[in-house]
Design a protein around this nucleic acid. Sequence first.
DNA 1: GAGTTTGAAACT
DNA 2: CAGTTTCAAACTC
Length: 602
Amino acid sequence: MEKSEGGDFPPKKTQSEPAASAHAGTDYPAKKLARQLDFTGSWGGGGSVPAASLPKHAKHIQPQVMKSSQLAVSMKSTQLIRPQLQTQPQLQQHVLVMPVQQTPVLPPHPSVRPLKPESPKARSRQNASEAKDGTPKKPKQCNCKHSRCLKLYCECFASGIYCDGCNCANCLNNAENEGARREAVEATSERNPNAFRPKIASSPHGARENREEAGDGLVLPKHNKGCHCKKSGCLKKYCECFQANILCSENCKCMDCKNFEGSEERQALFHGDHGNNMAYLQQAANAAITGAIGSSGYGSPPVNKKRKPQELFFGSMIKDPVHRLGQFQQDHQIKASVPPSSLSSIPGPRVGNAAALGPSKFTYRSLLADLIQPHDIKELCAILVVYAREAAKMLADEKDTSLKQVKCQRETSYPSSGVEKVMPDGCSNGIQAENIKAGESRFDGSDVTKERPISPGTLALMCYEQDTIFTAPAAPLNDLTRLSYNTSFQLLHGQSMTEIYPELERIMLTETRDCLKKLITLGEIKETKCSSKVRGVNSGSQNDVSSNGLAMTNSNNQHEPFRNGIADTDPPPPQNIDPATTANACHKVHPPDGNRDVKAQI
DNA sequence: GAGTTTGAAACT
DNA sequence: CAGTTTCAAACTC
């Protein structure tokens, strides 16, 4: 329809003319192409890139060449390149600009490309068309009306292919208008030497493996220029990164980006069978963009839709170890972005410039993100340190006391001896005295073990005392701590070490356990909230997706583990807690009333 | 399918 | 280089 119109339009005039004349025959955009360029060859049509661009971007040429097929694909097609690069002769679109046409094996330097444009039709290529089942299918059919398909607005042009079968009007992006097209290519290249360069650059470690339609769409390559999305949250195809199925990177300057590794919104999108459920994807994307996903799920009512920009990043200190495909992200991105102690630096890129804090886009946000605060951890550690220190004091005091007693006994037994003898326990007095003097700083347990072996857990806890953060009395003791503290003293006076140690250990581990249980419970409450909202919308098909992208345990877990915000007495081992931690905290010490205590505290 | 929204590209 | 306009795809209704 339109095509015929566009098809007729230029050829008669411009077929053998330079572009300028072609423009003369047209009305509007001619002004732009009026730039007269004397570049010797068209970058397209097998020509060279404008000379001016060569020196500066020489290093880009190779990728440009090598990724000829990728160009068209990655930029505008949602489909991904498959490894196989066999050509598909039936393809209707033709590669114009890719030097591969000349020397498919050796990436030719642009400067040595033949000047004469090879007929673009000489070779078709497999590109975005990606005829899945072998069906020749045009990848994209542009609908350009005003650009004459000679600007990057046009997907075909940008991809370096002729329009063929498109719905464009006044199309000059065809063989008949090669001259005009070449001019346009030159002009475009002049304006932006990288214009035809693949927008998606692979990271050094290769992108092939990540290009797969991985469920998470997790991909390593990144957009060369980066996107500048403002409203789409980078979760719609408006976003070039999203469209190319890659994560936004530090190159992006997007706002409120949700296309980063660990993004709940993004994971919610991809965890569904996105290949089969486009409607779901779109719905999810909308929900994500409006903030419905994440802490509140898809179906949250219009109220409370907007999320605070910082929210997603605040808790990223806690990495969820379950994240499946994120290893490379952790290595590649998170490590550089999330200094463990600088939580406050995390929230940057969501609002505004991602480049500055770029990689933090990829931080992961745990369900416990809002629950665990640094001071909580400090408090817990402080408690443990106090206990550990107290244990040391008790140990020292105990030994001191026993020493004195022994001494006294000996003095009474050997009034004038004056000679220190080896103690019955095998410790010389001198050594012992030194050890005692060393006091609390000595926790290697070497001699302690003679009296009673310290459990690894206790030893580990004691080691924390070495940490200067906690040695200072920075963290005031809470009531519970004081209570236990006093209890420890009481124990000291009435009980032997063999009784004290287990008690101390029990207290310490109980504290740890309780603290962790609190976190678990809070996290589960939050998870329940999310899942219930998700359920509200998806009612089934996608309900195995939790808001943070972790699979729910199973459908049985969908029923509320909590009522009124209180955990059931025996919640299943939460899946969003580090299993090791949970095991250490909850399984080693398992007092019968543990859960009840937690409930009461909550 | 028409109208709107969006963000890249083009332009000033 | 920043701001604005143009453009076509994506999206919504």
